[in-house]
Nucleic acid binder design. Structure first.
Length: 575
RNA sequence: GGGCCGCUAGCUCAAUGGCAGAGCUGCGGACUUUUAAUCCGUAGGUUCAGGGUUCGAGUCCCUGGCGGCCCA
């Protein structure tokens, strides 16, 4: 049986890898291939932004699998200005608007030294869990240490040419009235924020009354970027600016490290500086005059380098996020997703769809179906019936060139685990007891066998499932119901209670609960069900559900009974 | 007004220019089956429309339609 490894590479990732390798050979033979992502830690880095990282990660990983040297850069745009105070943060933070993100205090209660670090940290942790290797580059560190000195002086010398390029796309309203971003906290915010992935689309491009300057200093007194360059001398590199705070001064750009190139120049400068061959961007960069389009001209005409291969990626949506997010004033992040699903599943969601396809990440019941699909795919991989594209996506999900990601040794269905922790409310002993009885042939002896999936399911149940869909076992017997029961119902409960002791196992209770209506109908316990009997069984189940959980339905009865415990069952059923 | 992307089974999506395929849903069957239990089987198509290139087009080109998004 020949291995079909070749066909496994027939997916979008592989195609980009082909293209990137060929282009890298042409541009810089023998050099490590550079793939890049840009993230702005201006707020929670969410699941839309993860696509900014996952897309080059998957491509870089494929390139590495093929034996090429490759580096995945994540550029932290933490020297960008603080644009607005997000909902939920004290309005006094507005005094920091205009400062670099690394100069803004972290939100109250944070353990991190500044705003940018506060939001970078959980993303870094999530990337580690996802098996994403990268080299992080802080733009604050780069700019303030003068790494870009030559590039900045060069861009200033070439400012007229840059201005001319930008001018091709400027329309009547010059420095467009930007800001005014929607402040929706709904799902729209997730999509909206995704647009900010690698820098704001509508940023000030550097046009000022005194001419065009691609460099914007941060004020040396108030630290904000409310500055206007008033003069620049190419020979002395003396740059004069005034600030809205009243400060004005003249600095020598050749030794000034408190400012940055405007975004539309900054981005192409870094393409050239790092030799980036692959860097995706959000769909908002696809219009004429966008950073990516303009950047492509600037990098070529000014910096003399090539634009990266840059697919546009579509939005990542969320389905059914519980209230949690809106109260936090935040959209779900990779860390949030990893609380309810394992890393390979999350990787799979990004690997199976081409970047230009939008998709949703399920925080609602859909996650159960998704997990079923994932498990089914795993089985099909095992028996060789999976489609090539599915094989490829699966392979990229479960591991990287560095090796496989952690797995759950006994991957029980997610819906089963969720249902169990629902009724046991996370009580480990009860959970283990039920799990042990699930498959007597191969009993589960430790919760570790079903972890981490069990923990994810538990987290999902407790944080995402609405209370009305949870199972809540009654605290007190439903005396009103018990008091109004007819003789038939009373007898059925007596029969059930009488059999509890000797049938206390999943199988035992299964035959007991189905058997009670049979005995009542005068049938043998192993009798074949008739339509009438099925109705009687259903009615009996509903009665027990009402008495135990106050509703007509619930988790399968044997499971529920085991979870509730014999004593409590007797109490609630009036025994 | 300009641009980017998409349009394939009821739904979500596959398919190097080479026999249009999966999953879910539906339907049928098995199971003593219960918040969407599981297994087996099966149906399902004018690939948005029209034109062009080609031995051959879901795929490439042109025109139009619809949808999403971005810029204005």
């Amino acid at each position: 049986m020949p291995i079909v490894a070749m066909s496994a590479e027939a997916d979008w990732v592989s195609r980009f890898a082909d293209e990137v390798i060929a282009e890298a050979e042409r541009r810089a033979p023998g050099e490590p291939i550079v793939c890049a992502s840009g993230l702005s830690p201006s707020g929670p880095i969410h699941l839309g932004n993860l696509r900014e990282v996952m897309t080059p990660h998957l491509v870089a990983d494929e390139i590495r699998r093929r034996g090429h040297e490759v580096v995945h850069i994540i550029s932290w745009d933490d020297y960008d200005r603080f644009r607005k105070v997000p909902a939920g943060v004290d309005s006094s933070w507005s005094e920091h608007i205009g400062k670099p993100l690394t100069s803004v205090p972290a939100p109250p209660g944070s353990a991190y030294p500044n705003w940018a670090e506060h939001f970078k940290a959980p993303m870094i942790a999530a990337l580690a869990e996802l098996g994403i290797e990268f080299r992080g580059i802080s733009q604050t560190a780069q700019y303030t240490s003068g790494v870009y000195r030559e590039q900045i002086l060069f861009a200033m010398r070439e400012r007229e040419r840059i201005d001319a390029i930008l001018d091709r796309y400027r329309t009547k309203d010059k420095p467009a009235a930007k800001q005014q971003q929607k402040l929706d906290e709904t799902d729209a915010a997730a999509a909206q924020a995704a647009a900010e992935g690698s820098g704001a689309a509508g940023e000030d491009d550097g046009k000022a009354a005194a001419g065009y300057f691609p460099y914007k200093p941060y004020c040396s007194v108030c630290e904000r970027d409310l500055t206007t360059v008033t003069a620049y001398d190419d020979d002395t590199t003396e740059l004069s600016y005034t600030c809205a705070c009243g400060h004005s001064e003249t600095v020598r750009l050749a030794e000034h490290d408190r400012g940055k190139l405007v975004w539309k120049v900054d981005w192409p400068m870094r393409w050239a500086f790092e030799g980036v061959v692959f860097e995706p961007s959000g769909v908002d960069h696809s219009s004429p005059g966008s950073s990516f389009v303009v950047g492509g001209q600037i990098v070529k005409e000014v910096f003399g380098a090539d634009q990266p291969i840059g697919p546009m990626y579509a939005f990542v949506g969320i389905s059914g996020m519980a209230k949690m997010s809106s109260s936090k004033g935040a959209v779900p992040t990779p860390a949030d997703a990893l609380e309810i699903m394992e890393a390979p599943l999350l990787r799979w969601l990004y690997a199976r769809r081409r970047p230009n396809q939008s998709f949703k990440i399920a925080f609602d019941q859909e996650i159960q179906r998704l997990y079923d699909e994932w498990d089914a795919l795993h089985r099909k991989i095992g028996d060789g019936t999976a489609l090539p594209a599915d094989v490829a996506a699966h392979g990229r999900a479960v591991g990287t060139a560095s090796g496989p990601l952690p797995v759950t040794p006994r991957p029980l269905p997610y819906r089963t685990l969720a249902s169990i922790v629902d009724v046991t409310t996370g009580h480990d002993e009860q959970t283990l007891r039920i799990l042990r009885d699930l498959d007597p042939e191969h009993p589960i002896t430790s919760l570790d066998e079903v972890r981490p999936r069990l923990d994810r399911a538990e987290r999902w149940i407790t944080t995402q499932v609405p209370a009305e869909q949870r199972t809540r076992v009654r605290d007190e017997p439903a005396t009103d119901i018990l008091g109004s029961l007819g003789e038939g119902d009373r007898e059925s409960l007596r029969l059930l209670l009488a059999g509890l002791g000797e049938h206390w196992s999943l199988d035992g209770l299964t035959s007991l609960v189905y058997g009670v209506p049979k005995i009542q109908a005068g049938l043998a316990p192993d009798a074949k069900p008739t339509p009438e009997l099925k109705v009687a069984q259903r009615e009996f189940f509903a009665l027990v559900y009402r008495l135990l959980v106050g509703r007509d339905t619930g988790p399968r009865l044997p499971t529920l009974l085991l979870a509730v415990g014999a004593d409590r069952v007797r109490e609630l059923l009036g025994g």
